[in-house]
């Protein structure tokens, strides 16, 4: 990932399209003034994203088509772990055994690491506390979830997402 990479035209156009569609969906009015304001705010948003360096990340576009499959897997994972956490909370004895796990990310790019960290936080029972140079510090509600995390399926899947 280079800090000074060229902004990619397809990514810019995609963002513009998403912004325009959401403006039209949300406003639902087609007067010239409102459409003009919409065009203005879409262009302003894209300009600000450009200045922020939103498009410097080369991996962005290539992992978009693989996201739905990953989301589907993550959804099932979330459902499973929520049932587990709900059972723990409702048990009168509350059998928690909080554990800290340090996880090395298999993804190289920043985008991959952020996806991994957010996926871990998203599934109940595990929270990313710190992400620093490819190392994640994860807080787990029970020892079992910690063991599962160390088996590394999330990490492997997140890394597979950005492989070309």
């Amino acid at each position: 990932m280079s800090q000074h990479g060229e902004a990619q035209l397809p990514a810019v156009l995609l963002l513009l399209l998403v912004l325009a569609v959401s403006w039209v969906l949300w406003s639902g009015l087609y007067k010239p003034l409102l459409l003009g304001l919409g065009v203005f705010s879409c262009l302003l948003s894209v300009y600000m994203a450009l200045r922020m360096g939103f498009f410097r990340n080369q991996a962005m576009m290539s992992l978009l088509p693989r996201l739905p499959g990953y989301w589907w897997w993550l959804l099932r994972e979330i459902a499973r772990s929520s049932v587990e956490v709900a059972r723990i909370i409702l048990k009168p004895s509350m059998p928690i055994s909080p554990t800290l796990v340090e996880l090395a990310s298999q993804a190289d790019s920043e985008a991959g690491q952020v996806i991994l960290g957010n996926s871990i936080t998203l599934s109940p029972g595990t929270v990313t506390l710190d992400l620093h140079e490819g190392k994640l510090l994860v807080h787990c509600l029970t020892r079992d979830t910690a063991r599962e995390l160390q088996a590394g399926e999330v990490s492997r899947r997140a890394a597979a997402l950005e492989r070309n």
Binding site: I78, A79, S82, V85, A86, I89, M94, I96, P98, T121, L122, S123, P124, G125, T126, V127, L129, H139, L141
Partner: peptide, 21 residues
């Protein structure tokens, strides 16, 4: 869970249950 769990880091898990699932 947000009320029952004993300390801050465990309460996050309860919050993430309501936030995601």
């Amino acid at each position: 869970g947000g009320l029952r769990l004993p300390n801050f880091y465990t309460r996050i898990h309860a919050a993430s249950l309501t936030d995601t699932m």
